[in-house]
Amino acid sequence: MKKISGHKKMSISEWFSVLAQYSEENNIDRDVYGNGKFLNEFESEMAKKFGMDKALFMPSGVMAQLMAIRIWSERKKNNRFSCHSTCHLTRHENNAYQELHGLSAVIYGKEHKVVSLSDIQTIGESISSVVIELPMRHLGGDLPEFEELRAISDYCRSKGIALHLDGARIFECIPFYQRPLSEIVALFDSAFLSFYKGIGSTSGSMLFGDTDFIDNAKIWLRRHGGNLFELFPLAVSAKYFFQKNECYFHEYFEKTKEFAEVISEFKSIHMIPSSPKTNMMHLLIPLSAAELAKKWDESPFGDLRMGNWGEVAPSVCRLEFVIGRASLEWSPQEFKEALNYLLK
């Protein structure tokens, strides 16, 4: 069955079979408490790709970002960090930064606008670090212009403020910026990557920074309970799917632009942002949650499900549409017919 959003999911048995073959072909060894030839070479390869000194693989992005802001707070001797109001740290983690680390968040910017230099310049409080998410998921994958990012980076460095990249979906940004990954990451002092989003693996993330930063992160990983006895089940999957899917992000973006042209023909659908910057967009569609679920269940076109953020107004749902490997199978005409079905 065709699927419109994201990647097709392997069955558990398929997943084990594929990774078993990959492990056999590549003679992958086991790791113990973060030490192992395969795991450490993977970390080194990714650090080189990001243009950072070192990288540290771990089970969870929540851990990675909490550790990052904690390390910067200790280095700068300041327990305040700043982030956008849509930041994962303040929206989705039950105030872990405060409850676990005693840190305070200072919010910058406006909820429905991408970060700007002015936002950072007018924070108004002494802070240890600034967190920027690229792309900004709650804004439909919107992005600031690269020169704006460069100006923010220059400003933070002039003020001694660490700049951390929430790069869970950083590979999705490369087609829009048309710059190498390392050039984007060079604007930041630390960065985080998720392996289960656009890369399509299972749980797993990586934290990047200078040598002292990562050495300190290893201590905090242990304190967070993330220094597991063995990480290879997550790490093998992460590397396999990274190698499999890294080359597709430009193709995802081209398909996104095709779909955006189709969506623009439907006056009743509102697209956020109005011109996609990545292979993600949010759609305001004139259907209630119940109507949408019924349409999805009865679809003759395959799986039309997207992330449903619920009703934002009576009979209007906000959907998160991510263009991935599964989406590439759809022609613009097939997509148009599917939208006509949803709206009729």
Rank of each mutant, 00 (worst) to 15 (best):
I4G: 11
K9R: 15
F16V: 09
S17N: 10
L19G: 14
Q21C: 15
Y22V: 14
E24Y: 07
N27L: 06
D29G: 15
R30L: 13
R30C: 08
D31Q: 03
G34F: 00
G36Q: 12
K37R: 15
F38Q: 02
S44K: 09
S44C: 03
D53I: 05
L56S: 00
M58K: 13
S60W: 14
G61S: 05
G61D: 05
I69A: 06
I71V: 08
S73K: 00
C83N: 12
H92T: 09
Y97T: 07
Q98C: 11
H101E: 15
L103F: 10
E111K: 12
V114A: 11
V115G: 00
L117F: 02
T122P: 13
T122C: 13
E125G: 06
S129K: 10
E133G: 00
R137S: 14
H138Q: 14
G140D: 10
A151E: 15
S153K: 01
D154Y: 02
C156I: 04
S158N: 05
K159R: 05
G160M: 07
R169E: 14
I170G: 10
E172V: 00
C173W: 03
F176M: 06
Q178A: 09
Q178N: 11
P180N: 06
Y196F: 13
Y196R: 13
G198M: 09
S201P: 02
T202S: 14
S203P: 06
G204Q: 06
M206L: 01
D210H: 15
D212S: 06
D212H: 03
D212P: 01
N216H: 15
A217M: 14
K218E: 14
R223S: 09
G225W: 01
L228M: 05
L228P: 01
F229A: 09
F229D: 06
E230K: 05
L234Q: 15
L234M: 15
A235T: 04
S237I: 12
A238V: 07
A238N: 11
Y240D: 05
Y248D: 06
F249V: 10
K255Y: 00
K255A: 02
K257G: 06
K257I: 12
E261Y: 02
E261A: 09
E265A: 12
K267W: 03
I269T: 02
H270Y: 10
P276Q: 03
K277F: 05
M281T: 08
I285D: 11
P286M: 06
P286K: 03
P286G: 06
L287A: 12
S288Y: 08
E291W: 02
L292M: 10
A293V: 13
K294I: 10
K294R: 11
E298W: 04
R305W: 01
G307K: 11
N308H: 00
N308F: 00
V312T: 00
V312M: 02
P314F: 00
S315A: 08
S315K: 05
V316G: 04
E320V: 01
F321W: 14
I323Y: 05
G324S: 03
A326P: 08
A326N: 10
S331Y: 03
Q333S: 12
E334M: 09
